[in-house]
Amino acid sequence: MTLKISHLTGGYGQTNTIKDLNFTIEAGTVTALIGLNGSGKTTTINHVIGLMQPKSGSISFNGQDSKSDSSNYQRNLAYIPELPIIYEDLTLREHIQTTIAAYHLDSKLIKDKIAKLLKVFRLEDKLAWFPIDFSKGMRQKVMIVLALLTDAPLLVVDEPFIGLDPLAVSDLIDLLKEKKAAGTTILMSTHLVEGAEKFVDQFLLIDRGRIRAKGKMKDIFKAFPQQKTINEIYLHLAREAANG
């Protein structure tokens, strides 16, 4: 199942934050958006998950258009946000039950999967707790558990490692590798390029709303032959932007 972005332009108000983006993500592969803050990574993700509508261009997954066939498109999608979205009056167990209901899942069939995810992120003894009272890292783990229990064929992840301890980062990378091996199509944004290199198939370097370079990290560096590290590339882009 392929995610296809064609001539995508969009943004806030009259401003086009992203401009004529074109890329595809095949099933069983991971594409990572990288770039400076404000480059258009999160805006791209917000269009893919349906929070924003394109001003022009299209987004489709497995042939289902995000605008004209939005219901079917959304059923195939799971999302891990950068900032956890927690329901104040629901316990962890109730968050899980709400996700099961929203995706029409069979709670008996996914019982073992839920137990595994809760154990991996050390949440198995907190089902009766209210995640609103959790730390930022623990709330992020709740978001990961809810998204991964769905088995949605399209997984969108916005800065998944922020706020997680090193063990949780390692656990999440292992789970993303499992999803990739199972054929999930994965789009993510991240600043942790070195850790992502081990499982990301394609990097898209976004610069002021456009794709500046794409491919493996070696391809990104080929586009910036004078820079030797990703931080040097980011500094170069910042200087370019400052000089207009």
Score class of each variant (00 low, 15 high):
1 M>D: 14
17 T>H: 04
18 I>E: 09
20 D>H: 12
23 F>M: 11
23 F>H: 11
24 T>G: 06
24 T>D: 12
25 I>Q: 11
26 E>M: 09
28 G>Y: 05
28 G>R: 04
29 T>P: 01
30 V>I: 07
30 V>K: 00
31 T>N: 10
32 A>Q: 05
32 A>V: 07
33 L>Y: 05
34 I>A: 05
34 I>P: 00
37 N>K: 02
40 G>V: 03
41 K>N: 02
48 V>L: 00
48 V>C: 00
50 G>D: 09
57 G>K: 15
57 G>Y: 11
59 I>F: 10
65 D>P: 09
70 S>H: 09
73 Y>I: 02
74 Q>L: 10
75 R>W: 01
76 N>Y: 01
76 N>W: 00
80 I>Y: 02
81 P>E: 09
83 L>A: 06
85 I>S: 11
89 D>M: 08
91 T>V: 06
95 H>A: 09
95 H>T: 13
96 I>W: 10
100 I>D: 04
101 A>M: 08
102 A>Y: 10
106 D>S: 04
107 S>P: 01
107 S>D: 12
109 L>I: 04
110 I>R: 00
116 K>D: 14
117 L>K: 04
117 L>E: 10
118 L>E: 01
119 K>N: 06
120 V>G: 05
122 R>D: 15
124 E>G: 01
125 D>P: 00
125 D>H: 14
126 K>W: 05
129 W>I: 05
129 W>R: 11
132 I>L: 07
137 G>L: 03
138 M>A: 00
139 R>E: 05
139 R>T: 11
140 Q>Y: 03
140 Q>P: 07
142 V>M: 04
143 M>I: 07
145 V>E: 03
146 L>Y: 08
150 T>E: 01
151 D>G: 04
152 A>F: 02
152 A>V: 07
153 P>F: 00
153 P>C: 05
156 V>C: 04
162 I>D: 15
163 G>H: 06
164 L>Y: 09
167 L>A: 13
168 A>I: 11
168 A>G: 03
170 S>P: 00
170 S>R: 09
172 L>D: 08
172 L>R: 09
177 K>A: 08
177 K>L: 13
177 K>I: 15
180 K>R: 12
182 A>N: 15
185 T>W: 00
189 S>N: 13
190 T>Y: 08
192 L>E: 11
193 V>W: 06
197 E>N: 13
201 D>R: 13
201 D>T: 12
206 I>C: 09
207 D>P: 06
208 R>D: 15
209 G>Y: 01
210 R>V: 14
212 R>E: 14
213 A>T: 14
215 G>R: 03
216 K>D: 14
217 M>W: 06
219 D>G: 02
220 I>C: 10
222 K>D: 15
225 P>V: 11
225 P>R: 07
225 P>W: 08
227 Q>T: 10
227 Q>F: 10
228 K>L: 02
231 N>P: 04
231 N>E: 15
232 E>I: 07
234 Y>A: 05
234 Y>C: 06
235 L>V: 14
238 A>V: 10
240 E>H: 11
241 A>D: 14
242 A>L: 12
244 G>A: 12
